[in-house]
């Protein structure tokens, strides 16, 4: 019920302000949504990467926060497809594992920020704001 309430709130906003979240861990997914909501940002959650890739083809998505290690599909793969499907969508990577190779690949694939879980909420929100061309938090 609570989840739906947040979604309802965000759905009232324009697509341009909505941040997409892709993580196969529901708990993590919900917590990031709440963090972004606490900064007044609207969020659309995706538990499965493929569902996001379908969505992004039909909607304008300014920013996606993307997990790397997911059962169905790696975040890097999603990132690679995203370049073709929606080149305007910016991507922020969150990963559970510090891996320079993965980080390098992600940056090369166009990711604008790379966070290792757990991350600093301030830095994360600033990165999101930056990606959305909003004012950073003081």
């Amino acid at each position: 019920m609570g989840d739906r309430a947040i979604c309802m709130t965000s759905s009232e906003k324009s697509d341009a302000e909505i941040v997409c979240l892709v993580d196969d861990d529901l708990s993590v997914l919900k917590s990031i949504e709440r963090l972004l909501a606490s900064d007044g940002l609207s969020v659309r959650r995706f538990n499965k990467p493929k569902e996001f890739l379908t969505y992004v083809q039909a909607h304008a998505v300014p920013l996606v926060v993307l997990d790397i290690w997911m059962e169905e599909m790696s975040g890097l793969e999603v990132l690679a497809q995203l370049g073709a499907l929606s080149p305007s969508t910016r991507a922020i990577i969150i990963t559970g594992r510090e891996d320079p190779t993965v980080k390098l690949t992600a940056i090369q694939s166009g990711a604008v920020a790379f966070f290792t879980k757990p991350f600093d909420d301030h830095q994360f929100l600033n990165a999101v704001r930056g990606a959305l061309a909003l004012h950073p938090i003081e």
Partner: peptide, 18 residues
Amino acid sequence: LNQPLTAIANNASAARRF
């Protein structure tokens, strides 16, 4: 370990901001 810790941290941060 990271997953639940991340979720906790995020939830806590969100709560503080709210």
